[in-house]
Simulated assay, not measured.
Amino acid sequence: MINFNGNLTNPENIKISSENRAFKYGDAIFETVKVMNKKVVFWEDHYFRLMASMRMLRMKIPIEFTLEFLEQEILKTVAVQNDLPSYRVRLNVFRKDGGLYTPKTNKIDYTIEVKENTFKTKENYSLDLYKDFYNYSGLLSTIKTNNRMLNTLASIFAEENDLDNCILLNEKKGVVEVTNGNIFIIKGSVIKTPALEEGCIKGVIRKKVISILSKNKEYTIEETSISPFEIQKADEVFITNSIMGVQPVTSYKKKTFKTDFGNKIASNIKVLQIAGI
C-alpha cells in the first residue's frame, strides 16, 4: 500500500498525469528514513531537513505538516505492510501539477512508500572515482531533490566495473560524496568529511557521526575540501546514509584500508538507531 496525501491505496491506483512536475522537471524532494521496532529512526533530523528544503525550494508547507503528523502518516503506512523487523520508507514531496518552468502553484502533494530494508553491511567494499560528470558545489546540491541523474550514471558505472560504489567529484575536482551517501576519511588522528559548501547532501547520519566524533578528544573532525589523492593516503574510509548507517570501505583503486574505526562508529550508530534517538 502507498500513502498518497494521507490516503492508503494500492500502487496500481496511483495515476501520474503528464503534467506531474516531479516527472517533467524533477520538481520534488524526498527523505529516505528507516523504521525499526515501530519507530521512525532519527525522525526529528529528517523532518527539519525536509522543512528547510521545502522552504528553500519555495514549496508551500501545509499547516498540518507537523513533525507528529508526518510521523503518524509514516507509521500508518508501515502498519499495513507485512510484519518485518526493519523498513525503508521514502517520503516524496512534489509541487502540484501545472505550469512550465514557472509552476501554477507552490502547493504540494506527497507520497509515502514502504519497502523491506534488506541492506546488510558488506565485509569487503570497493570504491573508485566517477569522473564523467560533476556534482556542482553550492547549496542546491545539498538538497535531496528527485534529480538524481548523476547518481544513476555513477551507479551504472560502478556496476559495469564490479565496484560497490563510486565517489562523486565537484567542478573543482574535489570529493563530494558517494552515489548514495556521505564519505569520511581517516589519517592518523584527523577525520575529514567534505564540507557542505563542496556540494554534499546534508546527511542525517553524517550529522550524527560528526556529533560523536566532536566529543572524542583523541580525534579531530574537519569539514573541509578533500582531494582524491587524500583518499589513497588515508588509513580508513567509511560511508554513511540513513539506511546503511555506517559502511566501512576496504579498497579504493589499489589501496586497501583497515576497518577498525569504521566498525566502531558503525556500532555506535546502531545503538542510537535502536534507541530511536
Rank of each mutant, 00 (worst) to 15 (best):
E68N: 13
D132N: 14
N241P: 08
L168T: 11
M36W: 13
K255Y: 02
T142D: 03
L67Y: 07
N7K: 15
F69V: 07
F133Y: 15
E116S: 07
L50A: 13
F257V: 01
A22N: 07
N7E: 13
I63M: 12
D162I: 02
G98A: 10
V33I: 14
A158L: 05
G199R: 02
E160Y: 06
N268C: 06
I212M: 14
C200T: 12
I265C: 08
I265R: 07
D83I: 13
F157R: 00
M1Q: 05
F229H: 09
E197K: 11
E116G: 01
E116I: 03
K253Q: 10
P103H: 11
F48D: 05
K96G: 04
K215R: 10
E236P: 14
I156E: 13
Y219N: 08
V246Y: 00
E31S: 11
G26S: 07
L213F: 09
H46W: 06
L57G: 05
N10T: 11
L100S: 15
T220E: 14
K270C: 03
G245A: 09
E123M: 04
N170K: 03
D83V: 13
I185A: 02
G276I: 07
N263M: 07
Y110V: 06
S189M: 12
Q273T: 01
G181H: 00
A154V: 09
R206S: 04
F157E: 03
E64M: 01
F119V: 06
L70V: 15
K104C: 09
E19D: 14
T179H: 03
C200M: 08
Y110P: 13
A266E: 13
D260W: 08
M36S: 12
I205L: 01
E68W: 07
K215H: 06
D128Q: 03
K107Q: 10
Q81A: 08
P194A: 08
F94V: 05
L57S: 05
V40E: 04
M54P: 13
G203E: 03
L50R: 00
I112V: 15
A154Y: 00
K217I: 12
R90T: 12
R21Y: 02
A158R: 02
V89A: 05
R148C: 05
S211D: 15
N3V: 04
